[in-house]
Design a binder for these strands. Structure first.
Lengths: 276, 276
DNA sequence: TCGCTTTGTTCCATATACTGGAACAGTACT
DNA sequence: AGTACTGTTCCAGTATATGGAACAAAGCGA
């Protein structure tokens, strides 16, 4: 299908999450806007074409409402309507919106050369990511030019809770913010929390100690990763950068070596964000 | 600034366009949603931080309304609020939305290897694009690995009216749709229309004849391009693919050669979209 | 330092625009 | 043909967005 990285598709699967999250009604929030955007959120990477009924089910909004919202979104180019099947798909307008975000992220350009260097090791995929809710969303990715690697595209998401990338991000936050995010994760997760929290605390300690942290198959089986936080000096923003790939190509020893390099890269990248 | 392609930033400049386009009130349209999205649209690639006042000016919406919309968008992660400067920036959530679009575009993966081959020529940037309103949005880009090239990122836009990419796209449309789009372009452009139309008609003829069309500095001075339409067989969608770059590296003769290759690539890509 | 200007947010009565149950239309399946 | 299902439209009720104006805050110049 793709020539760039067969096998191991890293794109997220279902991730229920959906549900319109109807707020407890902060009167300052524009309900219709929230609902319209939750319609767009209903589309997952894998599904090709959602009917209004399916959208309604996922968002919890009544059919009639969804109908008008998807009509509006189609009119604006953020959805495409497949008249034959009566289904909707995300539209190109979304890219235009994303571009406004990407174009002002200086850190992407700064980090890119470092990422290319890290991606020279076979099987390694290097990601730079920012937070969106309880996920880290990839804002730049470089993949090793080898047949087997982890296919990560810009916009791909990984949960904070169970990835090296996520734990590194948490380590980059100031303590109060971190605890707030952890509380959100706890509220979102169920029985798995104690185990998850243990892993997170261990990785926070690892970063305090050696500068990087690892995850061994906790997110996707047979996928290992190592990551560092990155704090942009001017914008005070927090990002995370990781190297990930198939476990057989990236045993713990290889991850440790990559971790060292990530730590070095982090220093230079952060310095560069200060001087821009 | 960037290590990947200095000089010749291809990202769009201002492109007024803004203006909320307040519809003549199709009652099926959700006003608040339209307005909220027009707030997001107000952000151009270049500006770093918009205040509510500036957004209000660009969209034509009253300050109070913008205030609530931007508050809502921030709450959802589609905007970020810089408390220090009191300004807003696009947020990572937009990437998540865009990902849903990108991930289901099989044509990107299909076209990619062909694009890489075309980008082997020095200075060439290869773009694959879909339509958003009166622009073509880049959905995939591959740049020659040379110091001077045209920096194009995913999401970058180019006007249909004055680019080879745009003209090729028009050639890919069925006649009635094409004329409708042309009418829109005419309504949008002013005095320049007669000249623009002449160029478009000439390029449509060129594509009918030789399969590709060129543009020589009409969009950006000193930037030449050559393009072909691409029609996905299954989805009936129309795209366009182009090679572009600095005029001194891509004289007419080089463009013609690239044009031939584009035509060949087009055939194979279209065939592949049928069998998927 | 102090007032002046500019800019962002909050308030609140008004009426607009959204809501969502139910009826209607259009398909696919039996 | 009948049935089950899905998507769209309708419409009265009302919750919700609106936007002018007042308020607060920051920046600027004197």
């Amino acid at each position: 299908m793709s020539d760039r990285g067969i096998g191991l598709p890293a794109e997220e699967a279902e991730l229920p999450e959906g549900a319109a999250t109807e707020q407890g009604c902060d009167p300052r929030l524009a309900t219709t806007l929230i609902r319209g955007l939750s319609v767009l959120r209903a589309f997952r990477a894998r599904d090709s074409g959602l009917t209004n009924g399916e959208i309604s089910r996922r968002t919890g909004l009544p059919k009639a409402t969804v109908s008008r919202l998807s009509y509006t979104l189609t009119h604006l180019g953020y959805l495409q309507h497949d008249v034959q099947r009566g289904s909707y798909n995300p539209g190109p307008g979304l890219l235009t919106l994303a571009h406004a975000y990407l174009a002002q992220m200086d850190i992407r350009a700064i980090a890119h050369p470092f990422m290319e260097r890290l991606a020279e090791m076979p099987g390694v995929t290097v990601s730079l990511a920012a937070r969106d809710r309880l996920n880290l969303v990839t804002i730049e990715a470089v993949m090793a030019d080898t047949p087997i690697n982890l296919r990560v595209n810009i916009g791909a998401r990984a949960p904070i809770a169970v990835t090296a990338l996520g734990h590194a991000y948490l380590a980059g936050l100031k303590a109060p913010v971190r605890e707030a995010v952890l509380a959100e994760i706890q509220a979102d997760s169920e029985a798995a929390w104690p185990k998850t929290e243990a892993l997170i605390r261990a990785n926070l300690a690892a970063i305090a100690e050696q500068g990087y942290c690892m995850a061994l198959g906790e997110w996707r089986a047979q996928i290992n990763g190592v990551a560092v936080p990155i704090r942009s000096l001017e914008g005070q923003e927090v990002f995370a950068m990781s190297c990930g790939g198939p476990a057989q190509l990236l045993p713990k020893s290889a991850l440790a070596a990559l971790g060292q390099e990530l730590v070095a890269a982090r220093k230079e990248i952060e310095r560069a964000t200060g001087t821009q």
